[in-house]
């Protein structure tokens, strides 16, 4: 009993310590840094200022922000459209194949996503695998210019983030009570009605958790737009990277990071509310 208690205290303390140091402390440091004045010699210095934030309203930043948001939403939508049917049919597949398919889905994680992104370059570049194949098959006559376009960024993001959409969707769809489907059939519902009125609404929590897991990294994965989008494609993720590493403007970078954190917080609130909607009793 007592031994158990020590273990409990130890586990909880270490988690709290870990989170305090690496999340809370670094968050506070970023917050403070975002409020300091940028300085060439010491990186930043007093006095406190809000100018780092007001500068974010500069048209260039607003454009980057909107473009990032647009690409992230597009990426999330594509992931949902590709991932939902996959997750849905996964739950309908024979148990034996299902495990196999899930493993296939997870295998790419064993390789660094940076390396996989380089592999995408090899495939889509002007003299890459894809163009060579399409030209030799006579489908196209001039190589497609995919690399260094938004399309390439989307391909890279979707490829990297699709499993994050599929897994929560699958976890949700798998738990659906089959007797509800039978009850709906029994009451005369067609397949389409069952999907629209039973399966889809009940999978909303899965859709939302999948969407959140995709939209956040798709705004911040800086190396994908760096590698696939080229110099033109400046998104929120590489903006922060640029501000810290190239411009050495840590305060500005911190302020942009805070904006992103705020956005993430808002999304989590949305998520929390939608979960409450589906679970609580007083909702009607």
């Amino acid at each position: 009993m007592k031994h158990n208690n020590y273990f409990k205290v130890f586990t909880l303390t270490s988690i709290w310590a870990w989170l305090s140091i690496f999340v809370l402390l670094s968050f506070c440091m970023t917050l403070i840094a975002s409020l300091l004045t940028p300085n060439e010699q010491t990186i930043f210095s007093l006095p406190f200022t809000l100018s780092n934030y007001t500068q974010l309203f500069n048209l260039i930043y607003v454009k980057i922000f909107l473009k990032s948001l647009y690409l992230a939403l597009l990426c999330t939508s594509i992931c949902l459209l590709l991932g939902y049917p996959f997750a849905y049919f996964l739950t309908k597949t024979n148990e034996k194949y299902r495990e196999f398919l899930l493993i296939l889905l997870i295998i790419p994680f064993w390789t660094s996503s940076l390396i996989r992104t380089y592999a995408i370059i090899a495939i889509i570049k002007t003299k890459g695998v894809l163009n060579t194949l399409l030209i030799s098959l006579g489908i196209i006559h001039h190589p497609l210019q995919l690399l260094f376009t938004n399309t390439a960024v989307i391909i890279g993001l979707v490829y990297n983030l699709l499993p994050f959409m599929i897994l929560p969707l699958y976890a949700n769809l798998e738990k659906h009570d089959q007797s509800l489907i039978e009850a709906a059939k029994d009451l005369g519902a067609t397949k389409f009605t069952i999907f629209k009125r039973i399966t889809l609404p009940l999978s909303m929590p899965g859709i939302i958790s999948g969407a959140i897991l995709v939209i956040l990294p798709s705004m911040t994965l800086f190396y994908i737009p760096d590698l696939l989008g080229g110099a033109k494609s400046l998104l929120l993720g590489n903006l922060i990277e640029y501000q810290f590493l190239t411009a050495h403007n840590w305060s500005q970078g911190s302020a942009t990071s805070m904006l992103l954190t705020l956005l993430m917080g808002l999304l989590l609130i949305v998520y929390w509310h939608s979960m409450k909607k589906t679970n609580t009793k007083e909702f009607s």
Partner: peptide, 27 residues
């Protein structure tokens, strides 16, 4: 099943959890 004029009361009731009582009955 959809075309048969027989309806079932399931062991687990199988009520649609996201719908109100009214919507369940109106289904």
């Amino acid at each position: 099943a959809e075309a048969r004029n027989v309806h079932t009361v399931f062991q687990s009731f199988a009520l649609f959890p996201h719908m109100t009582v009214y919507e369940n009955v109106a289904f």
